[in-house]
Design a protein around this nucleic acid. Structure first.
Lengths: 122, 122
DNA sequence: TGAATGGTTGAACAACTGTTCAACTGTATT
DNA sequence: AATACAGTTGAACAGTTGTTCAACCATTCA
């Protein structure tokens, strides 16, 4: 995951320090924002988002996802691992197959809001 | 932005084609999902998300953002351009300063849902 | 037990992306 | 007109990331 480091340099001479100080107080905590960007990073990959859109219809095995998205099982499996680490999907084995499904209803809402957003843009 | 290309290979022998076909029908259109991942990509960078969190308190000039986030004006400016291209912020010039502000109330909701989500994870 | 299929994993490569640096434009002030 | 400061821009570099490839494990079936 991202390292979240940056230089400490600010090359400004004149700053509205009353504004900066006030925002510094009110603004969401930096660590929370780092977690938030990490979360969005997980769902910002087109393969992962297509996997989640597929699983929105119900559980599927790796093979079926591979056929649906026209990608190798390996590529799908790698991305499923990322989604699982982020606790966005869960899995269960049944014989030779491993079935994946969405873990969180919450994420569905974020999806819908995102789609609503991009459809509203001029 | 991302190229959204992938190989067409599927290395599966046995596929539940009735499942795959059904999901293919129901599933959100691929192009929409590509746009969606592009949108999430914009807000998945920690610098950009911190800029947006700052602008949530009101408009700020590049210099103040630079001081607040302890980064160079150049770095801030580059990211502001990305946010502006994505129509997430707007700008106005006043003398030597350029003031940026959030363009879309919609995004605030997506933010809040994201924060709610990461705070709910076990 | 051996063969076949489903799935996972780690290394490597290529593509992408964020920051830096230097040069530049725009505006105000003297 | 010259200076100073705010902000922008493009190239370059380093760090990150997604897919491929090959090898591997797990399970079923003959």
């Amino acid at each position: 995951m991202e390292l979240h480091k940056h230089s400490e340099m600010c090359d400004c001479n004149e700053v509205h320090s009353e504004v900066v100080d006030r925002v510094k107080e009110v603004m969401e905590d930096t660590e929370v924002l780092y977690s938030l960007s990490d979360f969005f990073k997980v769902i910002s990959d087109s393969t992962r988002i297509r996997i989640m859109a597929a699983l929105d219809s119900g559980e599927m095995c790796v093979c079926d996802l591979s056929a649906l998205l026209e990608m190798t099982k390996s590529a799908i499996s790698h991305q499923l691992k990322v989604l699982k680490d982020a606790k966005l999907v869960k899995s269960r084995r049944e014989g030779k197959n491993v079935y994946y499904s969405l873990k969180d209803d919450h994420v569905r809402l974020i999806f819908e809001m995102g789609i609503e957003h991009i459809k509203e843009i001029d």
